[in-house]
Design a protein around this nucleic acid. Sequence first.
DNA 1: AATCGAAGATTGTTCAACAATTTTTCCAGA
DNA 2: TCTGGAAAAATTGTTGAACAATCTTCGATT
Lengths: 232, 232
Amino acid sequence: MNTLADGTAEHAHTTAWIASVLRSRIAAGELTPGSKLSEEPLSAALGVSRNTLRQAFSTLAGESIVTRIPNRGVFVASPGVEEVREIYRVRRMIEPAAVLWGDVTPKVLDNLEAIVQQAQQARDSGSVPDMADANQSLHRAVVALTGSTSLQGLMDRVLAEMRLVFHSMSSAPDFHSHYVDRNVTLVKQLRAGKREEAAAGLRAYLDSAEAELLAHLGDEQDRQSELRQRAV
Amino acid sequence: MNTLADGTAEHAHTTAWIASVLRSRIAAGELTPGSKLSEEPLSAALGVSRNTLRQAFSTLAGESIVTRIPNRGVFVASPGVEEVREIYRVRRMIEPAAVLWGDVTPKVLDNLEAIVQQAQQARDSGSVPDMADANQSLHRAVVALTGSTSLQGLMDRVLAEMRLVFHSMSSAPDFHSHYVDRNVTLVKQLRAGKREEAAAGLRAYLDSAEAELLAHLGDEQDRQSELRQRAV
DNA sequence: AATCGAAGATTGTTCAACAATTTTTCCAGA
DNA sequence: TCTGGAAAAATTGTTGAACAATCTTCGATT
């Protein structure tokens, strides 16, 4: 995927294209949370004008992938405790709602089962990234039950922010392996038509996932402040 | 509200300022759905450069207040049948979810009761706009139960789009009066802690509101195509 | 009257410049 | 040596002009 130094590919909505380039670089962890995106160097590196880069920034800021501080520049968003809480506030509403009131068709159920199978395979082969991907796919698919593009978009934003959270953690322990089984039961419950149970279980899942993530984030911050201390 | 021909008020985040000006003009119905926002005249009228107006457009497009057609310009969004369906898909998920799982405090209940009282007053005095406002306030407050700024933001966008729908209708009959009582019972159920009932009732309310709105929208389109026919 | 093609207008993008603000540098004074 | 703070440098916010690409309009031709 050669993204820079191309120069060509003119006039195909440059601004959206630049936005997508930055988006994937951030998602890939190439641009780490908190790092500054200076206009002049970046525009030069990407081969676009400062002006269009700026417009791409607006797009990404709207997706809260990037935070803009007036007169100080834009930075890759680095979600903290409050952001994680907000993420789970959203998920704890829309995911169970999708389970309770979404349009559960046999086709969708097959899809969900395929995803949990992928997750199981990933766990068996010990690939944490694949497991994370499968997990995100599952929850994305759950929200898709709503049939709403807006809710899907909100969920996508939230999941992108989740990836940022993981990127900002130096040590990324295995959050996902012990949730695979829960996902399996979730799909089983859906298949059985037990929506209330599924929704309740999903809420419990989200609660514990949030708690675990927040705990680890606290440790992380402690470690960082420790380092800071040591640096003095 | 003198918005243009001011010239001063320099350097206070012009782009955001312009975006908010356009946003309120559209919300007020000054700029009607479907009307084109040409860059050169508008930038001249607002006293800003075409470039910053353009950036403001990006913001508003992100809020789907405005739709951007490549190489053809930006237009005030004019939501149709599909958009209304999407609006209610969203509302039918997040409002009942907020009722079921939101944080219902006595303070919030008082607030909700104050709002339904306003709605009743508006109905008694026959003020349809006030009733519409109170109705929107109520549903906004319901979503606030989630405590999530993202969901609140999504709801705000949705309600803004609702206003556009109403603005795009030549005849705006009284949608709201026969929903006031339903809102009253909703708050009563919340006060009584009967969340499941409240959520179910709310979903029924949203279903019928959507149906009614879609029916009227269909009539509207029929009328318009009739006019178009007559013009030929 | 319908079709095709050439002006004309509008949007998308870039460049260069300047004002406003932040950050850095550096020096005087304690 | 350390601190305070003013000057200098760097960066962001905004503007205006310019040009390519695309859409629109209008007229010429058949």
